[in-house]
């Protein structure tokens, strides 16, 4: 393959967690690496870098996507919410609170992705039953085996929303 000299970086304007974020990135930088490295938002995790684990899930323009399979330059003008934007210690999102209550995490590495994924799923209104929620959350792997607690936490918040 031909070795291309590095193309000029491009300016990318995002809104991340409600605030404008300006990036100067080469096209080959994934949204995930831009978040973790350029913006130091390391709450979004890299578990495989190939769209096979869900740890890098962020909410982009209202929908959950995998930030590892997206180039940062493709998201110019987008609104991104990461785990840091959902809530902070002392001011948690209900699903973050539910994760604490249901002990829906162990090592914590899949957690950001599970929560972002769960929040977006609930907001999209998909997943009527527990079985459907399990299927719709299956893009987020958990190696610690916290599966039942994760689904418990999501069901608690989802059902709370429906009240």
């Amino acid at each position: 393959m031909q070795n291309i000299p590095p193309p000029a970086t491009r300016s990318v304007s995002l809104r991340v967690n409600g605030k404008p974020a300006q990036l100067e990135v080469a096209p080959w930088v994934s949204l995930l690496d831009a978040l973790r490295h350029d913006l130091d938002l390391t709450g979004t995790k890299k578990g495989c870098d190939h769209g096979q684990c869900g740890a890098c899930t962020v909410i982009c323009d209202g929908e959950r996507i995998l930030s590892c399979l997206t180039l940062a330059v493709m998201k110019d003008g987008s609104e991104i919410t990461t785990i840091e934007g959902l809530g902070q210690p002392g001011n948690l999102h209900p699903l973050q609170e539910a994760f604490l209550e249901h002990d829906a995490y162990q090592c914590g590495y899949c957690t950001s992705g599970q929560i972002c994924s769960g929040v977006a799923m609930i907001e999209a209104g998909h997943g009527k039953t527990r079985e459907e929620v399990k299927d719709l959350m299956s893009g987020n792997l958990c190696r610690c085996g916290a599966n039942t607690n994760i689904i418990d936490a999501i069901m608690a918040v989802k059902d709370g929303n429906h009240e």
């Binding site: 769209g51 869900g54 996507i65 995998l66 399979l69 994924s117 719709l136 893009g139």
Partner: peptide, 9 residues
């Protein structure tokens, strides 16, 4: 097919 995240992209 795939997952909700992938289907969204």
């Amino acid at each position: 097919g795939a997952t909700a995240q992938i289907r969204n992209s």
